[in-house]
């Protein structure tokens, strides 16, 4: 089974986020970069499939040189190799641009299953997986929380949560599967795993290697543009309502709701 895990390097959710001077991006100084949680979960699922039926796992990412660390993280868990598309022209791509680049890489390599995190913990667009499937002309399965490969290894069945219930879907392979929350708990890399990962191959590609017209991706081609970025407003200090009796406090509270919060 040839498994491709699309992975993005994102700021650690514990990082202290500041908006950069341009007001449209985050200030990356001092940011700790990690592998996006759902992509890590994708690597885990790929490993479980490989442990059962054998195969090769490739971690694929579009990003600057620092992304190598995220790829090594995936390989330390047990993935076999990585491909990194590192090209300044690709920077600032919107989800459609990223999907186009990923599709160009995947078309050139064997693939039975492609995992994408159903969202990243930074931009949260939840689009790349769907667009990638469209670009490749293969099925896309929604955020999977359970997954099973058929006995003949020709199809995949997933369970996905819908409001108040569960959806069971099946598709022939190859297919793109987006990884939902709770599909698995990603393993910790082991010490020897981390050591080995240092020697596993990372194939670095430019857009030209993929035959992609630079005018069709990157910031210039993005159909969705970030206009402005602001931090959520700081929470105001709480207010304690004083009063001699419960009735008096309740009356004051009701008044506040009416006049200041304006929800009554």
């Amino acid at each position: 089974m040839e498994i491709v895990v699309c992975a993005k390097q994102v700021p650690d959710t514990e990082s202290f986020i500041k908006v950069g001077p341009d007001g449209k991006s985050i200030d990356t100084t001092g940011i700790k970069w990690v592998l996006n949680f759902f992509d890590e979960s994708g690597v885990e699922e790929a490993l479980r499939i490989k442990e059962k039926v054998g195969g090769t796992i490739t971690v694929l990412s579009v990003g600057p040189q620092r992304t190598v660390e995220a790829l090594r993280q995936g390989m330390a868990m047990g993935a076999d190799k990585s491909i990194l598309v590192d090209d300044p022209t690709a920077e600032g791509s919107d989800p459609a641009g990223i999907a186009k680049i990923l599709a160009a890489v995947i078309k050139g390599i064997p693939h039975d299953i492609i995992f994408c995190g159903f969202r990243t913990t930074d931009d949260e667009s939840s689009q790349v997986g769907l667009m990638l499937a469209e670009q490749l002309g293969i099925p896309h399965l929604p955020p999977a929380i359970k997954l099973e490969i058929s006995g003949d290894q020709k199809a995949v069945k997933v369970e996905s949560g819908v409001e108040g219930g569960m959806l069971t879907l099946e598709a022939p392979l190859p297919a793109v599967i987006t990884v939902g929350r709770g599909l698995n708990e990603p393993r910790m890399a082991s010490l020897p795993g981390i050591m080995k990962a240092k020697k596993k191959p990372i194939d670095t590609k430019k857009l030209a290697d993929l035959g992609i017209d630079p005018a069709t991706v990157g910031a210039a081609a993005a159909k969705v543009k970030i206009q402005n970025m602001t931090l959520p407003p700081e929470r105001k200090a709480g207010q304690i309502i004083e009063g001699a009796s419960v009735q008096e406090k309740a009356a004051k509270l009701a008044q506040l709701f009416k006049e200041e919060v304006k929800i009554l």
């Binding site: 393993r187 010490l191 020897p192």
Partner: peptide, 20 residues
């Protein structure tokens, strides 16, 4: 179990005995 899977128990054990 998690520490074991990460091979941390092997930290002080020589490589010829399966450690780090």
């Amino acid at each position: 179990d998690i520490l074991a899977k990460s091979d941390l128990f092997g930290l002080i054990i020589p490589t010829e005995y399966g450690g780090f």
